[in-house]
Design a protein around this nucleic acid. Sequence first.
DNA 1: GTATATTGTTAGACTCATCTAACATAATTG
DNA 2: CAATTATGTTAGATGAGTCTAACAATATAC
Lengths: 220, 220
Amino acid sequence: MASQTEENYLKSLFNLANPHGEVNISDLANQMQVSMPTVNSMVKTLQKSGWLIYEKYKPVTLTAKGQKEAALIIRKHRLTEMFLVNKMGFGWEEVHEIAEQIEHIHAPKLFERMDEMMGYPTIDPHGSPIPDKQGRMQEINYLSLSKIKPLQTVILAALANSSTEFLEFLNSRNLSLGTELHVLSKEAYDQSIVVSYLNHPGETLSEKVCEKLLVRILDV
Amino acid sequence: MASQTEENYLKSLFNLANPHGEVNISDLANQMQVSMPTVNSMVKTLQKSGWLIYEKYKPVTLTAKGQKEAALIIRKHRLTEMFLVNKMGFGWEEVHEIAEQIEHIHAPKLFERMDEMMGYPTIDPHGSPIPDKQGRMQEINYLSLSKIKPLQTVILAALANSSTEFLEFLNSRNLSLGTELHVLSKEAYDQSIVVSYLNHPGETLSEKVCEKLLVRILDV
DNA sequence: GTATATTGTTAGACTCATCTAACATAATTG
DNA sequence: CAATTATGTTAGATGAGTCTAACAATATAC
């Protein structure tokens, strides 16, 4: 069984993996906020337990076992976030820190019960997919709002970033998942977009914001 | 801030304290399932942080600060147990292990929300008092069923032991908190008691069991 | 294609929480 | 009250997870 520290490394490895599944030591050190020698020694430890493949001076790769373990931790995290929002009345900007701790609880029944009480949700409060009990995570191909052309109508479906600051920005603009957005225009100079939705007839969103808003195009 | 390990020592110290507030090193070692030298060094650490008073070869005593900290951890434990039973459908025999982990979560809002959702309960699923936000724990003077004379009627109010095995024994006998028990007779030889309740006209309970059943006498 | 910059590794040290072996003090008991 | 038993302490070691300083390999850039 992985320690809490090891679980955090597995989670970071899973999230940092490039399309080939590779992660650089320096990226992992940066993500984990520890020094590279620390990562180096931890990577050796994780390899000994069969969580990943490591060769000197090469990027590391999670094994199938490591990927599954990571996905199951992410599952606990996202189920917890959803439970906190749906069943306990928390705001989507409040749940990450709590879930970061609860994801390490060893109590299968607790998470099964959350899952059941919520009717087996497939996404978390930020639109990220919840891996299933086997650790399989569905790939959802959302579009970034920054790629949408004017006069199209889309639905806000997920976020590419779920930092407290970004979530509070979205709250201040009354933007939540499921909101129907009408793209009115796009500024060629800075790629900012003007959208209308609900009782906001013309809200300007910067490119930086649009990149983080994942949408699906509304079928007409 | 106390580490998770330190928190567990504080909790044990709180629970083991005799009426003078004293705890022996050996009792603490036994409770924590570690060696005496381990306790010895931890006790020095805890003293340095002001959680307890320690003098060589003497029993240790929690400071007011230590007592409050311990009570607040116990508060989180008991609120969690009550939440799991009342809001998530767990049995009273399933919740201890989970609460043992969740009590170390640092998230005041989580526990405040549990408290609020349950309407500010004062006891946990085993009848133990829940300390308040200031770490004050109410003293409840229950009687042990082993002290009750025949022909008296009592209400099962709490348990002096909440081990899974004991709770499963009580489940098998249909005994739960609030059950009205009529003491029919007491066997002088082994101190066992025959009680009637609900649809159990004559159930014999051993002295060992009676000692762990805390009751209050029903006003007639 | 060498020089420089970036990335990764090794060596050695530190803290925390634990252990065993050996020793010291306190409590109990004949 | 002396001997024995129980309880507590010291010393020194260990593994996990971290660090800094120094060094090595790879990648990038002129």
